[in-house]
C-alpha cells in the first residue's frame, strides 16, 4: 500500500507540473456544472400543470414517475438537468483516460520504466498506483463540480423539490459510486492498453475507442431509449464492480515485464 501511495505522489508531482494538465482536468467538470445551471435558469419561468406536462412538452411519459412531488415547472427543470447525470458519471472516466493511456508506455519512452521495475515494486502495486493517480483527481474534480452544480441548483430551482431530487439517493449513488467505478473501468483499460502498445499516441487513440460506447449511452438517454432510474443505477454499480475487479486482475496478468523491456523499441 505504501509503494502505491509513493507512486501516486510521484505521478501527481510530475503531471501537475504542467499547468495545462491542471486546466484540462478542471475544465470539463466545471463546464458540466455550469451548463445545467444555465438550462435551469433559462427554464425557470416555464409553468405548466404537472398533469399536462407529458402531453404538452418533450418530457417523455416514462419520466413522469420520477417527478413525484414536483410541479410542472419543477418536473421540467428536473427532466432537463437529469440529462446531465450520465455526463457527471462519465466525466471521471473521460478525463483520466489520456493520463492513464500514457502511464506505462510513457515511462518506457522516457526510459524510466526499467529503473522503476528494478525497484522492489510488485506489478499490482505499479498498476494500482498508476490507475489511482489518474482516477483520483478526475473523481475529485467531478465531485467538486457536482457540489457547485448542487449549490447553483439550490439558488435557481423553482421549487425545493428539484434540489431534493438532485441530492437524492439515485443521484448520489450515480455520482459517488457509479462515476468512480466507471472511471476505474476506463482507467484500467487505458493502463492495460498502455502496457501493450509501444507508442503513446496509439495508446491514447485506442483507449479513446473504448470510451466511445458510453457516448452511445448518452445518446440513448437523450433519445429517451433509456432512463436512469434507481434500478438501472444499482445494476450498473453491481456490474461495474464485477467488471472492474475482473479487468484489473486481467490487466495484472497481461502486464509482462519481460516483454515490455525486451520487445519494445
Amino acid at each position: 500500500m505504501r509503494k502505491i501511495w509513493i507512486l501516486v505522489r510521484k505521478e501527481w508531482a510530475e503531471v501537475f507540473k504542467n499547468r495545462f494538465v491542471l486546466f484540462t482536468t478542471a475544465f470539463l467538470p466545471l463546464l458540466f456544472a455550469v451548463l445545467p445551471l444555465v438550462i435551469m435558469y433559462a427554464t425557470g419561468n416555464y409553468a405548466s400543470d404537472i398533469n399536462d406536462l407529458a402531453s404538452t412538452s418533450d418530457v417523455p411519459p416514462e419520466f413522469m414517475e420520477l417527478c413525484v412531488g414536483l410541479d410542472g415547472s419543477g418536473c421540467m427543470q428536473y427532466f432537463l438537468v437529469s440529462q446531465f447525470m450520465l455526463l457527471f458519471m462519465m466525466v471521471p472516466m473521460i478525463i483520466p483516460v489520456t493520463f492513464a493511456s500514457y502511464s506505462i508506455v510513457g515511462e518506457k519512452s522516457t526510459r524510466t520504466l526499467e529503473p522503476l521495475l528494478a525497484t522492489p515494486i510488485k506489478t499490482i502495486e505499479l498498476l494500482t498506483g498508476k490507475a489511482l493517480a489518474a482516477t483520483i483527481p478526475a473523481v475529485l474534480a467531478t465531485w467538486l463540480s457536482f457540489l457547485i452544480f448542487a449549490i447553483g441548483a439550490f439558488i435557481l430551482a423553482t421549487s425545493p423539490g428539484v434540489v431534493g431530487k438532485i441530492l437524492d439517493a439515485l443521484w448520489l449513488t450515480a455520482i459517488i459510486v457509479v462515476g468512480p467505478l466507471l472511471a476505474i473501468f476506463g482507467v484500467t483499460i487505458a493502463v492495460m492498453i498502455s502496457s501493450r502498445v509501444n507508442d503513446p499516441r496509439v495508446a491514447e487513440q485506442v483507449s479513446a475507442l473504448f470510451v466511445l460506447p458510453l457516448v452511445g449511452l448518452f445518446v440513448a438517454q437523450s433519445l429517451g431509449l433509456i432512463y436512469l432510474n434507481a434500478q438501472l443505477i444499482l445494476w450498473m454499480a453491481v456490474i461495474l464492480i464485477v467488471l472492474d475487479t475482473g479487468m484489473f486482475a486481467f490487466a495484472t496478468q497481461l502486464f509482462q515485464r519481460e516483454t515490455i523491456l525486451t520487445r519494445w523499441k
Binding site: A13, E14, K17, T112, E114
Partner: peptide
Amino acid sequence: GILTESPGMYDQL
C-alpha cells in the same frame, strides 16, 4: 543496484 544503458529520469522533477 542497476545503472541501465540509457538511464531515464523524470525530467519535470
